Simulated scan of single mutants.
Amino acid sequence: MSNLIKVALNLPIYHTFDYMVPKGMNQPLAGIRVEIPFGRKKMVGITMKAGNAAIDGNLKLNYQVKELLKQIDEVPIINQDIMDICVWGSSYYQHPIGQVLFGAIPSILRKGEKINEEKFKNYYYSANSQIDTHYFNNKPSQKKIYEFIKNKNQTFLDDIKKITKNLTIFHTLVKEGYIKKLEYVPKNESESHSINLSTEQTNIYKSIKSDINSFNSYLIEGVTGSGKTELYIKISDLIASKRGQILIVVPEINLTPQTLER
């Protein structure tokens, strides 16, 4: 007995297609990419439902059911929440479900490429203090980059691009050990909530909190690293505790991981 599974394709077609899970292949979960035969070619599809029907030798169908060729993913790349949103969007806006699902994933994954976890890691850079600074004699460009990173606790690649267009120099410093490349690991939720506000932050927080139930506009001014983001998080926590809604627009892409973790 082999199970049927519904597969959505990136085509302007409003229905899914039935495929058979071959013997020896685990039943795919919903939201996994699979490779399937479609006409005379192979295509990438996204599974919609698992284990809803079965075929045995006594059941006759009025169409030929082909087998899946392979599973591309081991775990779903589209979780149930995103799947539900896509299904709703497809129905509400009358758009093919396959195109909606494929529009929710990066273009490289639409082609059936394996997920390279290394690409999804976020790194920051710090200066190696255990070096011979004579290396930078008569090397002003290298010294400028090194000093810039040295004066910051965590420097991301986007920051470095702001001070130099020649990243070859920067990568050479990393390769030779003058700059250390470290994986950025966001603080967990318990660590984030243990941060105490400064006096200035507390005054601003209290001012906004006093008018939280009415519409107001606030401009929080401060230099980089002064703690504006921490204020946004604390105020967002307050609004969320009152079952309100928050929209946070992140100004730099390197702030996205830590903001999501918070």
Rank of each mutant, 00 (worst) to 15 (best):
I36C: 07
K111C: 06
Q142L: 13
L9S: 09
F156G: 01
T16D: 04
S236M: 12
D159R: 04
N138S: 08
G45D: 01
Y92M: 07
Y184F: 15
T229M: 05
V185M: 07
L173G: 08
M1I: 11
S217L: 06
K161Q: 14
N166L: 00
I108E: 15
T259A: 09
M20K: 12
E189P: 05
G51N: 14
N58D: 15
V44P: 01
I212W: 00
F120K: 13
T256I: 13
F136W: 08
K180L: 13
P186Y: 03
G98Y: 00
S214C: 01
H95S: 13
K161T: 09
S241Y: 05
K6C: 11
T199I: 06
P186N: 11
Q99Y: 03
Y146K: 05
I212G: 00
E35P: 02
G177I: 03
L238K: 03
S141K: 15
S107N: 12
I5P: 02
I46A: 04
D81M: 15
K23Q: 07
T155A: 11
E261A: 09
Y19W: 10
F170H: 01
L167T: 13
E252S: 11
P186W: 06
L167E: 12
V174E: 14
N196L: 12
V7L: 03
R243T: 06
Y125P: 04
V87Y: 11
A240R: 08
E221Q: 14
T256S: 03
V34Q: 01
T202Q: 13
N3T: 11
E74K: 14
L109E: 05
L173C: 06
Y205M: 05
K144V: 03
L167I: 13
L173I: 11
D56Q: 13
I32S: 03
N138P: 01
L247E: 03
L260V: 15
T164K: 06
K242C: 01
V87E: 12
L231Y: 09
G45M: 02
K187C: 04
